[in-house]
Design a protein around this nucleic acid. Structure first.
Lengths: 239, 239
DNA sequence: TGCTTCGACTGATAATATCAATTTAGAGAG
DNA sequence: CTCTCTAAATTGATATTATCAGTCGAAGCA
């Protein structure tokens, strides 16, 4: 075990630098969107070689905290107010069971969130949900926009719940396998049916009826679950 | 945009190598526990310099897929199925509302998980839960061990649910503000009361009664919520 | 047989040089 | 004056070489 000061718990220089950068971002020295000093400059000020500094940055990039742009600079991406981040490099094949597990996990979270949104959501938030549904309706033929809008609808409900943890869980779960979810729902789902259910959920929210909102969200997501169950990975493989 | 074959979607060599290594692990060329070839050897066979290879490995290390041991080698760790991680640069102060939000988010997740565990859990898994409760009972005076054991109890229930997403959500939520949760429950909670409730939950699981398990978990976590509500941040500040 | 030491293997770091991508500044034309 | 284009500066990316640091296994000794 190393006994040098500052190296007590870490086994190498690049991980030390990683930690120091994490602490600087955590403490607010750098904010999301900020550009870090140039790599050579940071290497000098940390007193390490630039390959060591690059290794540290690659670690931070791997978990989404920074973004390294060739010729431009290194930018802070993650924020101090985010509790969870989704793993950018999922290393196993995506199975049907995993997709089912995902929707099974989303159901209790989103049912809870919509019930809270019915009582806690502000009028402005409900108005925002209404705009999203209007946008969805105007883009029934545009798969990309429609899918993104529908995901925003779910996400904004969680925000309207007023529960910070639920909102962030929703954010992370929405981002997981986003393309895959879109593909499956695109093949097997019904856009109009989805939209009608979303409208029904919004109406329950507008009536401030938590039980009705929960019931409708449950039905909606169970419908999504049924769609996912119909996915044939052999016939429509992902990636 | 690069047009070289194999570089179409990636902007640099080290990220290419990262992807190739992930694919080798994903496809089973290397299994958890396997040792990868030496860094210099891999650099030669991938046709890159060794700092480039090291950058790729640092990325994989950052997300738990490999472990790099100085002087020993690089080992596959099995983190390739991690869906989400907690944010290392989270920097906001812990508030009472956040602790309440956290338990409010845990309730639907853990109620769902325990219901699934009642039907899906293996006998061996239920046996493991029983051992945990025995360990908890033997350590009622040891705050650290008791707290860790109780957290493992909750975590293993999520594992017994057979839902990979729920298990990982539980893992992450359990680890969030772990010390803080332990401190508050230590001041305001009842060890014996907690333990009795855990025993009741296990009995419901052993009876394979999903509804009873859910009901008991709900009551248990609402009790935890009540404890958290009694926390006075002014009188017992955290860190 | 168990412990210690040494050598080989492996990872870690730095320096230097060169290449690649982006940004900025200046000049020229309309 | 504004816009476009080009060149230079800045910044990131990679490779090579040399040296240092940690681990592991084998051999030797008690």
């Amino acid at each position: 075990m190393k006994t040098h000061m500052g190296r007590l718990e870490k086994s190498n220089l690049s991980d030390d630098v990683t930690e120091r950068l994490v602490e600087m971002i955590r403490s607010g020295v750098y904010q999301p969107g900020d550009r870090l000093p140039a790599i050579m400059e940071m290497a000098r000020s940390f007193g390490v070689g630039h390959p060591t500094l690059r290794e540290a940055l690659k670690k931070l990039e791997a978990i989404g905290i920074v973004e390294i742009k060739h010729g431009s600079g290194v930018y802070v991406k993650g924020g101090q107010d985010v509790l969870l981040v989704s793993n950018p490099v999922y290393g196993k094949a995506i199975s049907k069971k995993l997709m089912i597990d995902l929707i099974d996990a989303r159901i209790p979270i989103e049912v809870k969130a919509v019930g809270l949104a019915a009582t806690e959501g502000t009028d402005a938030q409900l108005e925002g949900l209404k705009h999203l549904l209007e946008e969805a309706e105007a883009n029934m033929d545009n798969d990309v926009v429609l899918s993104a809008t529908n995901m925003s609808f779910h996400r904004e409900i969680a925000v309207a719940s007023g529960n910070a943890v639920l909102a962030q869980l929703q954010e992370v779960l929405t981002n997981l396998f986003q393309l895959e979810q879109r593909m499956i729902l695109g093949i097997y789902g019904s856009r109009e049916g989805d939209h009608k259910e979303h409208v029904g959920i919004l109406e329950a929210l507008q009536q401030r009826d938590a039980e009705l909102a929960e019931s409708r969200m449950q039905s909606h997501l169970e419908g999504v679950r049924d769609v996912l169950r119909r996915w044939d990975p052999k016939q429509n493989p992902i990636s």
